[in-house]
Nucleic acid binder design. Structure first.
Length: 440
RNA sequence: GGAAAGAUGCCAGAGUGGUCGAAUGGACCGCACUCGAAAUGCGGCAAGCGGGUCACACUGCUUCCAGGGUUCGAAUCCCUGUCUUUCCGCCA
């Protein structure tokens, strides 16, 4: 959530930012929260004065008792009792106000950075880079794939290839669990393991410490990274213990830094984690959920960084380069989008999406979002750092990105590397991890 | 699942009703000593929310797992919850 400090000190900038994010009634929401905050301050002031008085009286009662001035002590006692009643009411009022303010702040999204494009939907995103010459920078153009000599015309969708080569059994997953829980087998299963190992090895080379966190988290963690309370319906919930299955490793890994103060010398913190991710995906349907396009359970390697405000932009660039490097090493056709204000996630200040091209589906599949959350997430997490220079404490910047999510990468590898004889060539970078160079 | 013990600052660990935001030790920071270092000595060393200030200074309140309660006054007493550890049972 945004800090009250930012809202009050940079009022105009916040309003403008929210408008860019296409957040409705920005001014009303901001004005309302400012008014509440003022009320909160006034209440606290009154409460503090009350408590100060009763603290003093309580001390004096002790002294009076010692001196044997019983009558005076009794008068003071009565006065304290009165103050106490008043304090209790004020305290409750203050708590209620604080809760309301947090609630209001949680409904206000992060404000985008200046370099975030204007726009309201996916069409307004900027294509900033691609390894395809057909892909026009700054415009959503796929190019003519059927005539590209590097990607021959015989294109089966990955779900057919997976069936033909006995790599993934979607029906079996339905039997065991339900739709969206595929069973990988044989070389299909090994491809999963190969990708996980490849991605972790690359992250490790880039200096990320590997974390293997729990994939089930408590409520506090869900709140910390903002999945709760709003996106509760998107997570699987274990009601008996009140735990949630994680939708991304971001949740447990970022929550490592909840309520901590980090020495500046430790920054930037670089973590990576492979986990299974669980998403209910309520409301999805159609071609979006075909095959591997959208699953309820999938594997993902996430990279997370905690950094200073001065260095976070640099960190973000490094993360973008890392993810791009993975796609290059896998030899997949990709493009990088800088998301416009309206299409960005609620919490990000700036976000780039990476998409790979699915040759058979003739569509781009999102495989990574790499975001800088500025202090938005850190504020809710209370993730702060102590500056080396003046020892002051400030909010960190948090960043994360997928590096990478497996299913769509698998789809794209299958489709883009399929050969005329129905087999799939293994991307060179994966051969050491696969042990074979063709899937047949 | 049954039983017991415990939860205090960055860490260890005192503290059983006021003078306790909290002894002591360690870590850390500053200064002194030193050519430098070690050792030693002196000083500092929690966070949150307010007031105040250009910014400091200064200052009020809150916080000793969480939430309730007793009391004029709670780290300290009572209740509830959570978590941790140990033992027993079960078990990959």
């Amino acid at each position: 959530m945004l800090t009250m400090k930012l809202i009050t000190e940079q009022y105009d900038r916040v309003i403008a930012g929210l408008n860019k994010k296409h957040f409705n009634n920005a001014k009303e929401a901001i004005d309302a929260v400012i008014a509440k905050d003022q009320e909160r301050r006034a209440t606290q002031k009154e409460l503090d004065e009350n408590l100060a008085k009763s603290n003093q009286l309580a001390k004096s009662i002790g002294a009076l008792m010692k001196e044997g001035k019983k009558a005076e002590a009794e008068t003071a006692k009565a006065e304290v009792a009165e103050l106490k009643t008043a304090s209790k009411a004020l305290d409750e009022k203050k708590a209620a106000l604080e809760e309301e303010i947090v609630k209001m702040l949680c409904q206000i999204p992060n404000i985008p950075y200046d370099e975030v494009p204007e726009g309201s939907c996916a069409e307004d995103n900027w294509v900033v880079k691609s390894n395809l010459k057909e892909c026009v920078i700054g415009k959503d153009t796929v190019g003519n794939w059927d005539t590209n000599p590097d990607y021959p015309n015989a294109k089966l969708p990955h779900w057919e290839l997976a069936k033909n080569l006995n790599l993934i059994d979607f029906d079996l997953g339905v039997k065991i669990t339900g739709a969206g829980f595929p069973v990988y087998r044989g070389l299909g299963a090994r491809l999963q393991r190969a990708l996980i190992n490849f991605f972790l090895a690359e992250a490790s080379k880039a200096g990320y410490e590997e974390i293997m966190p729990p994939t089930v988290v408590n409520q506090a963690s869900g709140y910390g990274t903002g999945q709760l309370p709003d996106k509760e319906g998107q997570m699987y919930h274990c009601e008996v213990d009140d735990f949630y299955l994680i939708p991304t490793a971001e949740v447990p890994v970022t929550n490592i830094y909840r309520d901590v103060i980090i020495d500046e010398a430790q920054l930037p913190i670089k973590n990576c984690a492979y986990t299974q991710c669980f998403r209910r995906e309520a409301g999805s349907y159609g071609k979006d959920v075909r095959g591997l396009n959208r699953l309820h359970e999938f594997s993902k390697i996430e990279i997370v960084r905690i950094d200073t405000p001065e260095h976070s932009a640099e960190s973000h660039k490094e993360m973008l380069a890392h993810v791009e490097g993975l796609l290059q090493k896998l030899g997949l056709p990709y493009r990088i989008l800088r998301l416009c204000g309206g299409d960005q996630s609620f919490t990000s200040a700036i976000c780039y999406d990476f998409e790979v091209y699915s040759a058979a589906q003739k569509r781009w599949l999102e495989v990574s979002s790499v975001s800088n959350f500025d202090t938005y997430q850190a504020n809710r997490l209370k993730c702060r750092y102590r500056k080396s220079a003046d020892k002051k404490i400030e909010l960190c910047h948090t960043l994360n990105g997928s590096a990478l999510a497996l299913p769509r990468i698998v789809a794209s590898i299958m489709e883009d590397y399929q050969q005329a004889d129905g087999t799939i060539k293994v991307p060179e970078a994966l051969v050491p991890y696969m042990g074979v160079d063709v899937i047949k």
